[in-house]
């Protein structure tokens, strides 16, 4: 999902760790206890979660870019206010998640610097462009819809700070999906051109959205450890299927066609989709998607151009602190 680059598991370095503590830790997980920042945890658990939560945070922050692109061009004031609020929410989600990641021992600055240096990943989905207004509707409907599918089980993740951050995120995410679907309903009830624009956006976003759930279970080695540690509650393919089953009727209501001629509904009601082009997914993750360079350039520019604000705030705080110390000494 937002952390789909995590295909390689952190192998637990059992030799170096206290086997008794590790067993006790697993027993707590099995008993559905929450692990808190100061509790003992295996180094691999800490490392996996730091990577997963920080990637999730980077995704929220980079995710502001494709949508921010349309704030000044939203068709009405109502749409503009809603989109602005949604993009602010994404920023807030990034900040909740960074705070959760920091409880594992990395500083905010280290996490942000790793992303800016290209060492940490973010979700592949944000490397696709938003070409028309219909893309904003489609992102809310499908990208946020897929994110909700993935994030609801994360509310029960074994790591307390992550689970609590996800509860806040999920409460806010529902507005995002509804505002997106409302845009789609409006376009589909509009002129022929508007409906064609909606169909075009669905055509371009459908497959990248399915890729958001990560590689198929057969090739994802990462899942085993994460499942054992109750970081992950459902497999990539299970969540993807759930999403497809929920989305097909929504597309039918809009009168839009899912761009998968091979899709069929099987006897137990599930919509079976065709083979996903995993080469495209790997290319985008490797940095060769349509917007990877733009996204990184925009993040670096924002960070560099904000440097003077951080410096000014820090030097003002230092000056005030000096003054207070001097006054106290008088």
């Amino acid at each position: 999902m937002y952390t789909q680059a995590l295909n390689t598991a952190e192998t637990a370095d059992r030799d170096l760790e206290d086997a008794g503590k590790a067993a006790q830790f697993q027993a707590r997980i099995d008993a559905e206890e929450r692990i808190e920042p100061n509790d003992w945890m295996p180094a691999a658990y800490r490392k996996t979660l730091t990577r997963q939560i920080s990637q999730h945070a980077h995704s929220e922050i980079v995710g502001m870019l494709p949508e921010g692109n349309w704030i000044t061009r939203a068709p009405t004031l109502r749409r503009k206010a809603a989109l602005l609020a949604k993009v602010q929410d994404e920023c807030g989600h990034g900040l909740y998640l960074y705070a959760a990641a920091e409880t594992l021992g990395s500083s905010r600055e280290e996490l942000v610097d790793a992303m800016l240096a290209g060492k940490a990943k973010y979700s592949s989905i944000f490397n696709y462009p938003t070409l028309t207004w219909a893309d904003i509707g489609t992102i809310g409907w499908l990208v946020d819809g897929a994110a909700i599918m993935n994030q609801i089980p994360l509310c029960r993740c074994s790591y307390g700070p992550y689970a609590r951050a996800m509860i806040r995120v999920c409460k806010e995410e529902s507005f995002h999906q509804r505002q997106g679907y409302e845009i789609m309903v409006t376009l589909c009830r509009g002129s022929e051109e508007q409906k064609a624009m909606a169909q075009d956006a669905l055509n371009r976003w459908w497959w990248p959205v399915l890729m958001m759930f990560g590689p198929p279970d057969a090739t994802s080695q990462h899942s085993d450890t994460s499942t054992k540690w109750k970081i992950k509650r459902f497999s990539n393919d299970e969540l993807r299927q759930k999403f497809v089953d929920a989305t097909v009727p929504q597309a039918q209501y809009l009168g839009l066609t899912i761009p998968d001629p091979g899709m069929i509904q099987d006897a137990d009601g599930h919509w079976r989709y065709s083979e996903i082009d995993w080469t495209e997914f790997k290319q985008v993750l490797a940095g060769n998607g349509p917007c990877n360079r733009d996204r990184m350039a925009a993040r670096r520019k924002a960070h560099e151009e904000g440097a003077w604000v951080r410096e000014a705030a820090a030097s003002y705080a230092a000056k005030r602190a000096r003054r207070q110390t001097a006054q106290a000494a008088e």
Partner: peptide
């Protein structure tokens, strides 16, 4: 409700309002 980074108390209060009380 959570934590945040800020250089001083005034900025921390403003950031807290923006991050944790949007609704």
């Amino acid at each position: 409700v959570g934590s945040l980074h800020a250089s001083d108390a005034t900025m921390a209060l403003q950031a807290a309002r923006d991050i944790y009380t949007r609704r």
